[in-house]
Design a protein around this nucleic acid. Structure first.
Length: 485
RNA sequence: GCUCGUGUAGUGUAGUUCGGUCCAUCAUGACGGGUUCUCGAUCCGUCGACCCGGGUUCAAAUCCCGGCACGAGCACCA
């Protein structure tokens, strides 16, 4: 077989057993908060596969838990918007598990009637002890009639939470104890934020998700490898129903150096405690925060696609995402001058003939047309850290510095002295640059070039980095949010 | 402990199905240089890896055996 000259694969590997136009994938977040960087991998990979095969993605809310990770009503809308932002197109089908409860309960009943499920009234601890020794629990041998009557009691609320669970019968000799007679539905008496206390019995993920995948005709499931046991449990259930399980694919665990893992519930607590301003706090690894800071969705897509789909546990750096972002935004961001920690200087132009105005390109390579027009005044600022004897004021002149006075000696570049950014006072206004740094913020006060400052726009501050204009108030400093270098 | 999964440069990744064309791809990073009146962009160069030990073979990143490391699951969470 002929081998290609070694080359990096482009795009995702083909999906096994995929038929053009027939592929159905799903993305199933818990709506207990907005999406994080971690979720964006799922959105990107699934939507990309759908694109490759002209298939569909089902956005499904697996919101069947009312106690441990209850849904946040606002999150449903957020997630739909964020999905569309990341993928560049909306999900094809949207489903809420909490609205489809009658279906799951019907399948559960069918399972009891067909004899491959049973109502177990053992405590979790008792069951675990038996299970670990491959022993059946006493409830396992109950007949259909008894199971259905227990099922009735579960649903009418006469059994308390924790008093019973519906299990799927499996081979008790299965090597992996976790798979033996796994629980499919449990009792929850606490009301659901969306549908209230209509139901007393709620399916667990492994059951609900399995039924729903079948109903939606899902052909490929891409999920975290922590859910491998879920695949195995669900395959057992599919065998009972006589269904064919979708093609599963997995990715490994992802950490970001700068953030660690992504815990939606952890963030929720920290926001409630006032540690963060909200879900879009720039220090958070949420999609809303990235969007607010000025990341482009294309950069996020490029990044995940470049990583591909591997089962390796990885720890990535924001630097990599930032470099993808730079290549997306660099050619479309105007340049501006922002002087941090300004040092006041006076300009001495006696010795040389000079223009009164300067025209500086809005972008150095002309991707953006036009110029910034500066009127040169006697007073100007440079960054304090740049202060030195000989400097080149960018786009203007070589100067000799003496006691905060800059004497212009040449408009032409005469040697290799350092080029610094500078700003005539009459051209400036106050600004604050906020940089997220771990769990803190760094604030740089300074002066920004007062030309066409539009809220929401991303600029490249020369010799500083990319930043977003968050606010241009009538009075007071312009608010800038640092994006990356 | 049990079950499952994964090990390629600092970080990611290609190549592993079917052994050779792999002194191992690409990106990111670091360093150096060209260019550009930004510490940005761009171009060029350099650095740096097949987890370990055996085995099979003319030939192993790739196949086999044995270790080791890391991660996940073992919830009436998702």
């Amino acid at each position: 077989m002929q081998r290609q000259k070694q080359q990096k694969r482009v795009g995702l590997k083909p999906l096994p057993n995929a038929i053009e136009g027939k592929v159905i994938l799903r993305f199933a977040p818990n709506p207990n908060g907005p999406l994080t960087i971690g979720h964006s991998r799922g959105v990107v990979i699934n939507s990309e596969f759908a694109k490759m095969y002209s298939g569909k993605v089902v956005l499904r809310y697996d919101d069947t838990d009312t106690r441990v990770k209850p849904p946040l009503p606002e999150a449903y809308g957020w997630i739909e918007e964020e999905y569309e932002w990341i993928a560049g197109r909306p999900a094809d089908i949207i489903i809420r598990a909490s609205e489809r409860m009658p279906i799951y309960l019907e399948y559960a009943k069918q399972m009891l009637e067909s004899g491959f499920g049973y109502v177990c009234r053992c405590s979790a601890g008792e069951f675990k002890d038996l299970r670990d020794n491959s022993q059946p629990c006493p409830c396992r041998g109950k007949n259909t009639e008894n199971n259905l009557s227990d099922w009735q009691s579960m649903n009418d609320g006469s059994i308390e939470e924790g008093g019973a669970v519906v299990r799927v019968k499996t081979d008790l000799e299965l090597p992996n104890p976790a798979l033996r007679d796994w629980p499919a539905l449990r009792i929850q008496h606490s009301p659901h934020p969306m549908v209230g206390d209509l139901y007393k019995v709620w399916p667990l993920l492994d059951f609900q998700s399995a039924i729903e995948d079948h109903l939606q005709g899902v052909t490929h499931i891409v999920r975290g490898k922590d859910l491998m046991d879920s695949t195995r449990k669900q395959t057992l259930l599919y065998n009972h129903f006589g269904w064919k399980y979708p093609e599963p694919l997995y990715w490994g665990r992802v950490k970001v150096h700068e953030f660690g893992g992504f815990s939606t519930s952890g963030m929720k607590v920290d926001i409630a405690d006032g540690k963060f301003e909200g879900w879009d706090d720039p220090r958070l690894p949420t999609i809303s925060a990235l969007k607010r800071r000025g990341f482009e969705s294309k950069a996020i897509r490029d990044f995940w696609l470049d990583l591909g789909l591997t089962q390796k546990d990885i720890s990535i750096s924001m630097q990599t995402i930032e470099s993808f972002n730079s290549s997306v935004i660099d050619s479309v961001c105007e340049r501006r001058t922002f002087v941090r920690n300004p040092r006041n200087m006076s300009l001495n132009m006696d010795e040389i003939e000079h223009p009164d105005e300067l025209q500086i390109a809005r972008h150095p390579h002309g991707e953006i047309e036009g110029v910034r027009e500066w009127t040169i005044s006697d007073e100007f600022v440079i960054e304090d850290r740049d202060y030195s004897e000989k400097l080149r004021l960018k786009d203007f002149a070589d100067v000799l510095i003496k006691e905060n006075q800059a004497i212009v000696n040449s408009l032409q570049r005469s040697d290799k002295r350092t080029i610094v950014h500078w700003l005539p006072i009459n051209q400036s206004r106050m600004a604050r640059l906020t940089t997220p740094l771990g769990t803190e913020f760094r604030i740089d006060e300074g002066l920004i070039e007062n030309i066409d400052l539009v809220e929401g726009e991303i600029l490249q501050l020369e010799r500083v980095g990319f930043a977003k204009i968050e606010k241009v108030p009538e009075n007071g400093p312009v608010e800038l949010l640092f994006l990356h270098g």
